[in-house]
Amino acid sequence: MEKEINEINKDELILKEYRKLKRIMKPVGKEQIKAIDDLLQRLAFMTITLSDLENDVKENGAIVLFENGKQLMRVENPAQKSYNTMINRYNALYSTILGYLAKAIEPEKAKQVSDGFDEFVGGGR
């Protein structure tokens, strides 16, 4: 029963994170958001999962005792290993999504009236 409650809670957290990402991506436009919707869902999932893994490492440490029959040894926490793998993929996915946002915001920047400072500093480029 407790696991079911935790799974429901995780689903709610993932949905909340997904909605936050969609709000952030609003400048991209509805059509492009549809195109990257799966990426946003994966990023939301990864965000919550990374948080869980991080909590496990904080609670149990990066190195844990592992028992194999009579043998007791210290090994890297599996949560730490998963975290290290996922954080790299998370960063790559986040960069991809931010690229879409940057492309959407650039035209908005171009519309802004220049105060002349950039031209002055850049030598009129």
Rank of each mutant, 00 (worst) to 15 (best):
90 Y>H: 11
69 G>D: 09
121 V>Y: 15
59 E>S: 06
75 V>M: 07
74 R>T: 08
111 K>A: 14
106 E>A: 05
21 L>K: 04
79 A>R: 00
122 G>A: 05
28 V>W: 01
102 A>D: 14
70 K>D: 12
105 I>Y: 06
55 N>G: 06
29 G>N: 06
123 G>C: 09
14 I>F: 08
63 I>N: 04
32 Q>F: 11
114 S>P: 05
123 G>K: 03
16 K>Q: 09
34 K>C: 05
39 L>Y: 05
22 K>V: 14
31 E>V: 14
106 E>Y: 03
46 M>H: 03
106 E>Q: 10
79 A>Y: 04
46 M>P: 01
120 F>W: 14
78 P>M: 10
125 R>H: 10
77 N>W: 00
5 I>A: 13
57 V>N: 00
18 Y>W: 13
47 T>P: 01
1 M>C: 08
66 F>N: 13
52 D>S: 06
57 V>R: 00
61 G>D: 01
103 K>H: 10
108 E>W: 05
6 N>H: 14
21 L>T: 00
108 E>F: 08
2 E>Q: 13
24 I>A: 04
118 D>I: 03
6 N>Q: 12
21 L>Y: 01
61 G>Q: 01
79 A>W: 01
9 N>R: 15
116 G>R: 06
30 K>F: 15
96 T>H: 11
10 K>P: 02
104 A>E: 04
125 R>T: 09
94 Y>D: 09
